[in-house]
Structure formats: structure tokens, C-alpha cells
Amino acid sequence: MKATWWKVLAVALLAYTLIAGLLADVPRLPILNETVRALYFHVSMWFSMVIMLTVGVVYSIKYLRNGRLEDDDMALEFTNGAILFGVIGIATGSLWAKFTWGAYWTNDPKLNAAAIGLLMYFAYLILRNSLTDIFQRAKISAVYSIFAYAAFIPLIFILPRLTDSLHPGNGGNPGFNAYDMDSQLRMVFYPAVIGWALLGTWVSTLRVRYRRLARKMEEKMINQ
């Protein structure tokens, strides 16, 4: 195994997230109670998703610039990992909402925008798999991924802030304020985001390496 420093860092940060996330002091807030700790697991899923989608878009642009299928592998697998985090994010959010807002799903702007965003990325996978030519598939899905990203970021970060929402961090300009988080929560939250994003990167790069190897084998078989 290529034991690079960032894989060790991922394990260390995730262990810290788990121990400090469950045991460290948190503010005692009504309604939320202990569920405030879901911040380290639910919110960090979405942050990691956005980080991985960004990597996916960068590799999509790289593919369009030089047409190397290796870049398409990266774009696809990072988007795949991001979708996994998104699905976990929406499922954990739904459970959290049931016990704090009283329903698994509300027609809140943030929730609906997140659902639309996920559906856009499901469509990305369907679009990819409906094309048989690998170069056409890579090119069309790279273009789609850029457009989907350009719609996803405003959908989950900008539009819910223009209106009012039950979801914390919306309505007005809530970014990095003192209402939803304080320095003590941030001390676990930011390492958690980095840890989960690194785990996602690890799994994505594993699948990229599998894809590249499979392609090389195939080329070798054809050339024999």
C-alpha cells in the first residue's frame, strides 16, 4: 500500500472527530440537546461533498483541455464519492430533522435545493451510462458536470440565504457567524471536514486506480 502522509492524517483526523465529537463539551441548547454533535457528521458530509465536487469539476475542465481519459476517471470517481456523501448527508439530515423539527422532510428552501442538487448529480450518472462511446461519454459528462456544479453551488449556498429557512446558516449572511457555531465547536468541526474529505479522496483515488488498471489490461488484451 502506498502509505502516504494524507492517508495517515485521514485516519488520525477521523479518530479525533469520533472521540472529541462524542465526548467533548458542547453547548446545552434546548430542542437540540445532544444532537448538536451531528454537526460533526451531518454538516461535514456536505462540506466534503462540495470539496469533492470541486475536484471533479477541475478534472472535467482538464479533460476538456487535453482529452486524457485519466482525467475523466478522476472527474467521475470524485463525483461518485461526492454523491455518496450527499446521499448520506440528506439521510442524516432527515433523521436529525425528525427529532428537532418534528418531520423527516419539510418543504424548506434549503432541503428542496439540496434534493434538486442531488437529483442533478443522479442525472449525471444516468447521462454517462447512456453513452457508449468512451470519448463522447467523457466529453459530454465533463460539460454536464461543469453546468451542474455552476447550478449546485448557488442552489445550496446562495438561494436559501436569500429567503428564510428553518435550516441553520440561512436567511441573511450567516457565514462564519457566532449563532450556529462557536470556537469550541469549530475545533472539532474543521478537522472533521478535512478528515471526511480525505477519506472520500482515498476511496475515490482507489476507484480511479482500479479504473486505470482495468483500462490498461483491456488495451493489452486488444493489442495481443
Binding site: D25, V26, P27, R28, L29, P30, A178, D180, D182, L185
Partner: peptide, 11 residues
């Protein structure tokens, strides 16, 4: 969120 929230035994 303030420091008092960490001591609020009512919750």
C-alpha cells in the same frame, strides 16, 4: 452561543 450555554443544566 455563549459560555453560559455550556453550563445550562436546565437542558
Amino acid at each position: 452561543i455563549t459560555g453560559e450555554d455550556y453550563q445550562n443544566k436546565g437542558v
